[in-house]
């Protein structure tokens, strides 16, 4: 299957298995996603190799960033009619709380969709959605 076949299959079926298998980095950090109607919740199950600070212990901040980046790209692709993963242009990330060694969740929101660029907001949490561990926004270049 080519990438566009996989994206078409994912959009039509809502089954992310093939898409996630096709992105080695997503598998490397262990990213999962589930669709609930139009909503998608991204999950990062706990994983030893994702840890940074060994004293808390806490998930490496870079992994939290990578998790949110992949989530935003998949979310944006699902809201488009094209079957290509969008290119990230920039990413701005605020760390609000330590990401402890437990499952982490993320959800995305399309803030603005232009002709060429889209702005996506991402929020990641663990214990409660009302207590995010990180928030981010990203710009993506859309395929013409």
């Amino acid at each position: 299957m080519t990438t566009s076949d996989i994206l078409r299959h994912t959009q039509e079926s809502g089954d992310f298995t093939r898409l996630l298998e096709s992105i080695p980095y997503a598998g490397y950090i262990g990213l999962q996603c589930d669709r609930f109607g139009d909503d998608i919740i991204f999950r990062l199950p706990r994983k030893d190799s994702n840890l940074g600070n060994p004293m808390l212990p806490a998930i490496h901040g870079g992994v939290i960033g990578g998790f949110m980046e992949v989530s935003a790209a998949i979310y944006l692709m699902m809201s488009q009619d094209t079957f290509r993963l969008p290119k990230i242009v920039d990413f701005s990330l605020d760390y609000l709380r330590a990401g402890l060694d437990r499952e982490t969740y993320a959800e995305c929101h399309l803030t603005r969709q232009g002709n060429r660029v889209a702005n996506v907001m991402i929020s990641a949490w663990q214990k409660s959605r009302r207590e995010p561990i990180a928030t981010a926004r990203a710009h993506f270049l859309l395929d013409q």
Binding site: P24, G61, G65, G66, E69, L85
Partner: peptide, 19 residues
């Protein structure tokens, strides 16, 4: 290979660069 973001181009994912 494990940090590739796009298997067609074999380019590594931005997340690994962020880390």
């Amino acid at each position: 290979e494990k940090i590739i973001g796009n298997p067609e181009t074999r380019v590594i994912h931005g997340g690994a660069i962020t880390t």
